[in-house]
C-alpha cells in the first residue's frame, strides 16, 4: 500500500496502518534529520517528535496539497532546521567566527550515509548544477541556513541567492525526471 493510502487510514486512528507507514517513512525522516542536525542522538529525538506529529495531525492531512511523503518530509525538514538554528543561536559567537573562516563543503556528511540509487542520481544531478546553484540549494536544505545567511556565506546579493535556489531546484527536477 502506498503512503498516501496508509495516511488516510492513519487519519482514522488505524494503529496498524501507522506501523506500516512507519516502515515507509522512518528511514527518510531519520536520515534527513540526521543530515541536517549532524548528531545521531538529536536526530533520534527530532525524528521521534516528527513521527508522533505525523500520527497526531494525520486527520488534518489534505491530499489535495501534495503527497503524504512530501508532507512528512517537509515536516521533518522544518523540525530539523528549527533544531539546528536554535543550536546555532545558542553558539552564535562561534558561528560568526565559523562564517568568517569560510564555508563547509556541501557534501561533508554524505559519506557517512549508505549509498543508494536515489542518492546516486541526486548526487549526479547536483553535480550538473552550477556551483552557486548547488551551494545555494544545499546550504539551505542540508545545512539549515536561511537564504540571508546563504547570501552572507557566498557573498552574493539576496536576489541572486533566491534566483539560484529556484534555478537549482528546477534543474534538479529536470535532471531527476529522467531517473523516476
Amino acid at each position: 500500500m502506498e503512503a498516501d493510502e496508509l495516511l488516510m487510514l492513519v487519519a482514522g486512528g488505524d494503529h496498524r496502518a501507522f506501523e506500516r507507514l512507519y516502515v515507509l517513512v522512518s528511514g527518510p525522516v531519520f536520515g534527513l534529520v540526521r543530515r541536517v542536525v549532524r548528531d545521531t542522538a538529536q536526530a533520534e529525538e527530532v525524528s521521534q517528535e516528527v513521527l508522533l506529529e505525523l500520527w497526531r495531525s494525520a486527520p488534518r492531512f489534505d491530499p489535495g496539497r501534495g503527497s503524504a511523503l512530501s508532507w512528512v518530509l517537509t515536516l521533518a525538514h522544518r523540525r530539523a532546521v528549527d533544531r539546528v538554528r536554535s543550536a546555532r543561536a545558542a553558539g552564535e559567537r562561534e558561528q560568526r567566527e565559523a562564517l568568517r573562516s569560510g564555508g563547509t563543503p556541501f557534501d561533508q556528511v554524505s559519506e557517512e550515509v549508505e549509498a543508494g540509487l536515489e542518492r546516486e542520481w541526486v548526487r549526479r544531478c547536483l553535480g550538473r548544477l552550477t556551483a552557486l546553484q548547488r551551494q545555494s540549494v544545499t546550504l539551505a536544505y542540508y545545512d539549515g541556513y536561511t537564504y540571508r545567511e546563504v547570501a552572507e556565506r557566498l557573498s552574493l546579493p539576496l536576489g541572486t541567492v533566491k534566483t539560484r535556489m529556484r534555478d537549482g531546484l528546477t534543474r534538479l527536477r529536470e535532471c531527476l525526471g529522467g531517473a523516476a
Binding site: G27, L73, G116, T170
Partner: peptide
C-alpha cells in the same frame, strides 16, 4: 507545491536506517 516536491527528492537521498 512543485518546488517542495523537488526539495523532497533531496530528502530521499539522505535516507538512513533508524
Amino acid at each position: 507545491r512543485a518546488l517542495t516536491e523537488d526539495a523532497v527528492r533531496l530528502a530521499w537521498s539522505a535516507a538512513a536506517a533508524p
